[in-house]
Design a protein around this nucleic acid. Structure first.
Length: 465
RNA sequence: UCCCUUGUAGCUCAGUCGGCAGAGCAACGGACUGUUAAUCCGUGUGUCGGUGGUUCGAGCCCACCCGGGGGAGCCA
């Protein structure tokens, strides 16, 4: 009879006591006891905690292998799960066999038993998921992704795969990564210009900055859709909240107006938070204790009360009347700066805020013009600590107004012929938004730098691994 | 891209006035009857980010370059 292989997660449950099983994982630490035996902490990533294994001196390879078993080594261990005699864990395993799969040389393995700075761990991005913090981040990120599909699927949305390579520039704002197969040392030139007709697609192509426009085409056919995929921005931004490659979730709904959009965004955020609190309690405990004290209480509070909704105009009023000294002055018509958004969400409301109806001049062409002629039906969801986590709007469904706004933004209507067709043929009011997954991970975990909530961060000057 | 700041042992950092490169942790050797960042004793660790300059002499002063962090802008 072979011994059943179970996860560390299972082995740590009291129900496993009395069973003889096998676990497989990596050594987190080894402590040699005075009594001629050793404690081995094994983790396999299935949960935050380790299984404490007691390896007795009577094991055949005790002196030859186990007493020199180093951090990071991989092991397959069989034994009986018993109630732990020591503090700090419910169960422990008494090993009958400790098989070493792969040694991690103690002198060469970069990760030590102690804490490393996140900056240093970024240099070891291939090994950092083996640490407490990055394991926990990975599991929370996974749960947020799962909760996303769960939420939209249960709500009648269809998951649509919008293209990664595109010829359209969604916001009309450049800053895209070019995709080309042309030889950079020998570009085909015509009349002093690079002849893009000779490129792979017969014209210029780029990595997508948003799947929104393509998403709208499916929303105006299937009703409610969402996209969930990587997006790319070639902006030279060096901050703790920006990445060159990040994952975005973009729902788009036909027959939705701005208030429907807000309600959906709020329900979606709350669903994700609830799922993480329910399914990742060990990981959240860690973030609470070691990363951001108060993070779980803040998330719990978010679940309990409705998001504040505030028009841009109200926000400007509040900022002006606050008496707060801002580096950038506030006035109706200027875009809100980070310090203004922070004041509103962190000091004035102390929770998530939905700002809406922004001046048309500071927002994109596709956002629906309000009846006042001055504002558009845009919305941003701001949360404490992170700032803007969602940006969205009701889309302009009137062909004439949209065309006018495009021209005013300096875009050529013929480039967007298919987008305008959605307004020519059976146009409907519709709305949608985009949520940055990494910002959501930051918000739920309290991790300060966005480069530490994605496995392999890409930022200006950094494309390692 | 701009402002501020930082780069010294495997890791975290100290290094005074310009004068022999030094601590803790890890590692390694040993001790210790159940440990939880185990403890105790002992041992070694170097392209001082790079290039050039000033100087009898540079980790330290100067110039340029590269990387990290914080803030700003752009946004999700």
């Amino acid at each position: 009879m072979t011994t059943a292989w179970i996860s560390i997660k299972e082995s740590r449950k009291a129900e496993s006591i009395g069973q003889t099983v096998q676990v497989r994982g990596w050594v987190r630490t080894r402590r040699d006891s005075k009594g001629g035996f050793s404690f081995i902490e094994v983790n396999d990533g299935s949960c935050f905690g380790n299984l404490q294994v007691i390896a007795d001196g009577s094991l055949a390879n005790y002196a030859s292998e186990i007493t020199s078993l180093s951090v990071g080594s991989s092991v397959v261990i069989s034994g009986e799960i018993k109630a732990s005699a020591g503090q700090g864990q419910a169960t422990e395993m008494f090993a009958s066999e400790v098989r070493i799969t792969g040694i991690a040389s103690a002198t060469d393995y970069p990760l030590q038993k102690k804490q490393h700075s996140f900056e240093k761990l970024r240099e070891w991005a291939h090994l950092r998921p083996r640490t407490n913090t990055f394991g926990a981040v990975a599991r929370v990120r996974n749960r947020l992704s799962f909760a996303t599909h769960e939420f939209f699927q249960n709500d009648g949305f269809f998951y649509v795969h919008t293209p990664i390579i595109t010829d359209s520039d969604c916001e009309g704002a450049g800053q895209m990564f070019r995709v080309t197969t042309l030889p950079l040392d020998k570009l085909p030139m015509t009349d002093g210009k690079v002849d893009m007709s000779q490129d792979f697609f017969g014209k210029s192509s780029y990595l997508t900055v948003s799947g929104q426009l393509e998403g709208e085409t499916y929303a105006t056919a299937l009703g409610k859709i969402y996209t969930f995929g990587p997006t790319f921005r070639a902006e030279n931004s060096n901050t703790s909240r920006h990445l060159s490659e990040f994952w975005m979730i973009e729902p788009e709904m036909a027959f939705f107006e701005l208030t429907d959009n807000m309600t959906l965004a709020e329900r979606y955020l709350k669903h994700m938070i609830r799922e993480v609190l329910v399914h990742c309690p060990e990981d959240m405990d860690f973030f609470e204790k070691r990363i951001q004290p108060g993070v779980t209480a803040a998330l719990q509070l978010v679940l309990d009360k409705p998001f504040t909704r505030m028009s841009y105009t109200e926000a400007v009023d509040i900022l002006i009347k606050s008496g707060e000294k801002f580096e950038y002055p506030v006035a109706w018509g200027v875009d809100l700066q980070a310090e203004h958004e922070r004041f509103i969400t962190e000091k004035h409301i102390q929770g998530p805020v939905i700002l809406y109806n922004y001046p048309k001049e500071i927002k994109s062409f596709y956002m629906r013009l309000n009846d006042d002629g001055k504002t558009v039906a845009a919305m941003d969801v701001l949360v404490p600590g992170v700032g803007e986590i969602i940006g969205g709007s009701q889309r302009e469904e009137r062909l004439d107004v949209l065309t006018e706004r495009m021209v005013a933004s300096g875009l050529k209507a013929e480039d967007y012929w298919w987008y305008l067709d959605l307004r020519r043929f059976g146009t409907v009011p519709h709305a949608g938004f985009g949520l940055g997954l990494e910002r959501m991970v930051q918000y739920t975990t309290g991790m300060a730098n966005i480069r530490d909530v994605i496995p392999f961060p890409r930022s200006p000057g950094n494309c390692d691994f």
